[in-house]
């Protein structure tokens, strides 16, 4: 029986970077990273996997019906696996209509939660969703009903994920009392990569040595990922966005957001921002 670890985050918070890192770390020596085959960390929301587990199309079930069988589908994936099973998620930690948690059952070992300054998330998310303005993204980041693939009017390759607002997303995972969660700040991933990635690797129950972690970090540096995307494209890049690996910087909000936009984000997410060090006690912005 495999043990499931979720790699989870609000979008644009370092999840894909970590997936690329794990792909390098778990890959054979000399194996080239293929951005379009991040197969060691598939998406838990991928319909194809769920269709295989159900024996029929997940699209032939309503969202609510599908969420009722989802925990069993994940458990079945784990039963057929050995060792650690890594799955990427953007959904919030939530329950189905029958009050059964979607992401907590006997096969789940824990979750790595990636968090990033919501001011930078906003800028990056607005580039990712080119159809939205910054103001619309700010509104979505505070919208309890914000979801991905949540339309009932067309079939999408992913199943519905309900993100909710940024703060409630953070809280849903980090304050859940059912599965262990290891929180990683994007800013720390950039500032102290070796220590931060090593702590994540240990949380995932992996025993790789420091030099292997360092090697994987070099193989998936931001410049390298950007170069790979330039050469071979990246299938997870949404249409309308020039590149998925855009800047990856800390503090890019400073040159993009107006003071009014900053104030709205801070007002919506003050408590969570203080808790994770994005806002200090005196109300000053860090990063």
């Amino acid at each position: 029986m495999g043990r499931i670890y979720w790699l989870t985050s609000y979008p644009k918070s370092g999840n894909t970077w970590f997936r690329a890192f794990l792909e390098c770390l778990l890959g054979e020596d000399g194996e080239d990273l293929d951005l379009n085959a991040l197969e060691r960390v598939p998406s838990a929301s991928d319909r194809m996997v769920l269709d295989r587990e159900l024996g029929y199309e997940s699209g032939d079930l309503s969202f609510e019906e599908l969420e009722r069988v989802l925990p069993e589908a994940f458990a079945s994936v784990a039963r057929k696996s050995r060792g650690a099973v890594f799955q990427k998620l953007h959904d919030s930690f939530r329950r189905n209509e029958g009050e059964v948690p979607l992401y907590s059952h006997e096969a789940v070992e824990g979750a790595l939660y990636f968090i990033r300054n919501p001011l930078d998330v906003c800028v990056s998310y607005a580039c990712h969703r080119s159809e939205l303005t910054l103001d619309e993204v700010i509104r979505l980041m505070g919208d309890a009903s914000h979801g991905l693939a949540a339309t009932r009017w067309r079939q999408q390759l992913q199943i519905r994920q309900i993100l909710g607002g940024w703060s409630s997303h953070v809280g849903s995972w980090t304050e859940n009392d059912e599965i262990p969660v290891h929180v990683i700040r994007y800013e720390d991933m950039l500032d102290r990569p070796l220590a931060v990635f090593e702590s994540a690797v240990r949380f995932l129950g992996l025993s790789h040595e420091e030099r292997q972690i360092e090697g994987a970090l070099n193989a998936c540096s931001f410049e390298r990922l950007r170069g790979l995307e330039e050469r071979s494209g990246f299938r997870e890049r949404p249409p309308g966005m020039d590149r998925f690996f855009r800047k990856g910087e800390v503090g890019s909000w400073r040159s993009v957001l107006t003071s009014d936009q900053v104030a709205r984000i801070v007002a919506d997410h003050r408590e969570t921002m203080i808790k994770y060090g994005y806002l200090n006690e005196s109300g000053e912005l860090e990063f």
């Binding site: 159900l54 024996g55 029929y56």
Partner: peptide, 19 residues
């Protein structure tokens, strides 16, 4: 062979759709 909602054996297939 089996998944969360199907089981198969030679010449037999069981599929369960809740509800």
């Amino acid at each position: 062979a089996e998944g969360a909602r199907f089981q198969a054996a030679p010449g037999v297939l069981l599929v369960v759709v809740d509800g």
